[in-house]
Write a protein that binds this DNA or RNA. Structure first.
Length: 221
DNA sequence: CACCAGGCAAGTA
DNA sequence: TACTTGCATGGT
């Protein structure tokens, strides 16, 4: 059954890679900023951008809310796509200000599914960013899906290659205990696996900790 | 030099 | 609905 297989893969990854200590940020606000800035971007670049915000004392809701979008863009430049990301981050801050008075604790008390819908209505917040905020900033038991998840688990054969984000998310959430810690580590471990072994053009299947599940899966005929 | 990274929205057919 | 493209820096 899939529920056992999913858990077995998790255990192998955890045993092989260990705890991942996500999200690498100090506060809820920093996690939210990072979630926006890391869209299609290496985390090392996001760290530089957040470092700039820290140096300039902008890592508080009030300061960030006040700063002009074009000035914010300059500070987050190392994260790439800085003009559009500055706007998107501003959109999200505006949403949090108007709906929760800029208070992340208030936002955290909102019903999870309702909040997810609200976040998705913000221009610049898609499913992965919304779920990352829910899981890593607000400790909600929501499974985060990304390109690695889709690539790896469709290769294993337990996910269809044309499955949507929601399909994949449901699959994991229906076959695992809904536990924030488990979802936190599992997504982080999948990213680790994707980066180290399941790269697009340079797979390293020989050393992959779940090579039995991936590389020796019959291809169909 | 080419390719990729913890996406998303808008445009096109 | 199902592709395609713009967005941009920094590491390998």
């Amino acid at each position: 059954m899939n529920d056992k297989k999913i858990l077995r893969i998790y255990k192998k990854l955890y045993k092989s890679f260990g705890k991942q200590y996500w999200w690498p940020a100090k506060t809820k606000l920093e996690v939210i900023i990072g979630a926006m800035l890391t869209q299609n971007t290496a985390w090392s670049n996001v760290e530089k951008a957040i470092g700039n915000l820290r140096k300039n004392k902008k890592l508080s809701f009030k300061k960030l809310y006040k700063i002009k979008t074009d000035k914010l863009a300059v500070l987050i430049k190392p994260a790439g796509y800085f003009n559009i990301k500055a706007k998107r981050l501003k959109n999200l801050l505006e949403f949090i200000k108007s709906r929760y008075n800029g208070n992340l604790e208030n936002m955290q008390r909102e019903n999870t599914q309702a909040l997810r819908g609200q976040l998705l209505s913000v221009n610049g917040v898609g499913p992965e960013t919304a779920d990352s905020i829910l899981l890593y900033a607000l400790d909600k038991p929501v499974f985060v899906v990304d390109a690695y998840t889709k690539r790896i688990f469709s290769k294993i054969g337990i996910i269809s290659s044309n499955a949507t984000y929601e399909d994949i998310q449901e699959f994991f959430m229906n076959n695992l205990k809904r536990d924030t810690y488990l979802f936190n580590e599992y997504h982080a471990l999948i990213v680790k696996l994707g980066k180290d072994y399941c790269k697009k053009n340079r797979p390293n299947c020989k050393a992959c900790p779940i090579k039995e599940e991936i590389c020796s899966v019959p291809t169909g005929s």
